[in-house]
């Protein structure tokens, strides 16, 4: 009596889970399918469920849309790469500094960094715009990357300080006896052990930068500097003529793909970062 009832529950749970999974995937899959439709069918009203044939025409059109897809994809990639390099470098050094050294005002400085976490960048948009303009970093990919780095910093330093704190100090002592200076200890001994934390930090920085919309909208003004989300918005609002929905879906697919792949590959690091960032 007990066993069959349990297995009924199990089947029921799987069915419910699967239906919900389909609902979650439907928008993404529908967009993906539409991106491979012939342009005429992608723009058909009402929409057709089954395409007559698959085609790459939308992706071809995207290649030469505006400044060309490679330019926008490249812009997004440059900003994300600069953000990841900057955040990994700066937060590793700072996390190491806060974990292993004693210096006056250490506690105050760490707290000051965490307070940054409470002031979202949306609330200092206007002065940030002026600062960037003064430094000639407005309408610059480097400027956008620096903004991303700044607002990703508190979480990253916090996360990496915890990673370093979790490594026994005996490792440092041993390396120090072997004649390593503090930078060599960090590079050769601690960094390999703290690598999971570094990967989490890099992954969060990449996703935050790749998906950033408001800052890119405000700080980038030339269309040749646009990142993917801004370019897609312009395409959807019919900036260059009427909206081509097939091209839009090809653009959305290309924008979503890197995030989805990175997440699927590095899921473990994402969740561990999320947990330590949110719960601790």
């Amino acid at each position: 009596m007990n066993l069959p009832r349990q297995s009924v529950w199990r089947v029921l749970r799987s069915v419910v889970c699967s239906i919900i999974a389909l609902l979650f995937l439907a928008p993404i899959c529908w967009s993906l399918l539409t991106s491979f439709k012939v342009p005429a069918e992608a723009n058909a009203a009402p929409p057709q469920l089954v395409p007559s044939r698959l085609s790459g025409e939308n992706y071809g059109a995207l290649l030469v849309y505006g400044e060309g897809m490679p330019r926008y994809f490249g812009n997004s990639l440059i900003v994300a790469t600069l953000t990841v390099i900057g955040i990994v470098l700066l937060s590793t050094l700072a996390g190491y500094g806060f974990s292993r050294f004693k210096f006056p005002l250490k506690g105050v400085l760490f707290l000051a960094l965490l307070v940054t976490l409470m002031v979202p960048f949306q609330s200092i948009l206007t002065p940030l715009f002026l600062v960037l303009r003064t430094l000639n970093l407005q309408n610059s990919l480097l400027g956008l990357a620096l903004v991303n780095i700044t607002f990703q910093m508190p979480f990253s330093v916090f996360m990496l300080r915890n990673s370093f704190d979790g490594i026994p100090r005996e490792l440092d002592d041993a390396a120090s006896i072997d004649g390593c200076n503090s930078l060599q200890i960090l590079w050769r001994v601690l960094l390999p052990v703290a690598l999971p934390g570094v990967v989490s930090v890099a992954l969060f920085a990449f996703l935050a930068s790749w998906n950033e919309f408001l800052a890119a909208l405000i700080f980038l003004t030339d269309s040749e500097k646009f990142t993917l989300p801004v370019m897609l918005l312009n395409a959807q609002s019919g900036y260059l003529g009427s909206v081509d929905w097939g091209l839009m879906q090809a653009g959305i697919t290309i924008t979503v793909l890197p995030c989805a792949i990175l997440f699927l590959l590095l899921q473990r690091y994402y969740v561990s970062g999320l947990v330590s960032g949110a719960v601790k």
Binding site: F24, I28, L207, L233, I252
Partner: peptide, 13 residues
């Protein structure tokens, strides 16, 4: 999965 898609891109979708 939808969490890692940008809010801007999701809105456009």
């Amino acid at each position: 999965l939808p969490v890692v898609i940008g809010l801007g891109t999701a809105s456009l979708l």
